[in-house]
Write a protein that binds this DNA or RNA. Structure first.
Lengths: 108, 108
DNA sequence: CGAATAGTTAAGTATTGACTTGAGTATCGA
DNA sequence: TCGATACTCAAGTCAATACTTAACTATTCG
């Protein structure tokens, strides 16, 4: 997996782009080379490489070059960072959210 | 809570900004007016209002105006959308991630 | 070797995003 | 009623992003 824990900033920013999420979906099927990843996307290889850098820096993928081919695959680190951020807030804000639920219940 | 389910695009984009996350943290303490929310942030009220619009459109907060004061509070819809997106992928990609774990285990 | 493949890198453009300024509108309170 | 408060809205600025093009490097294969 990726080396260090990515900043939450990077992770959410990376996930915020539809092209990058599409790339992740593709990689969910299994490891893919850069040019195969680019195929379904309507943009140049160079643009895809730039997205890959962002995904890698945010711990969402790992890549490894063998010969002239770079293979890309999902990394769980980025997803975990995002998931934990959300889970932490949700539990911390539980009371707020519960109060809100109560108010709504009363309205019915 | 907010009306409809926000697009995942909006949610991740909203969460990607540090100012907006700081606003959410503040709101986690309880409902706050726009101007009180703006106090700790080094920017104009107008800028804060723009962030609030983004947060509301992404289902992360709800606001309600009473008299001349707009009260803002956390909404769980946005957080849920993000959480579910991640959870769905994680389970779908489980095999990928497990394979990865196994490979790493073998390397040690 | 030499041509095709696979990716890399740098530089430029064009849109989006995060702000500001400034001028408004609607309460509230004395 | 009149001034202060609490936003609201429309423009405009400036930097960050998502691209493109084009030139380059490193492999593979016949």
């Amino acid at each position: 997996m990726g080396r260090k824990r990515p900043a939450i900033d990077r992770v959410f920013h990376a996930l915020g782009d539809p092209t990058r999420r599409a790339m992740l979906e593709q990689l969910g099927e299994g490891p893919v080379s850069v040019s195969r990843l680019a195929e379904p996307l309507h943009m140049t290889l160079a643009a895809v490489v730039q997205h890959l850098q962002i995904l890698e820096e945010s711990g969402l993928i790992v890549t490894e070059k063998t010969g002239r081919v770079r293979s890309c695959r999902i990394d769980s680190v980025g997803l975990t960072v995002a998931e934990e951020w959300i889970r932490d807030r949700r539990t911390r804000w539980e009371k707020q959210l519960d109060k809100l639920g109560d108010l709504l219940a009363e309205e019915n």
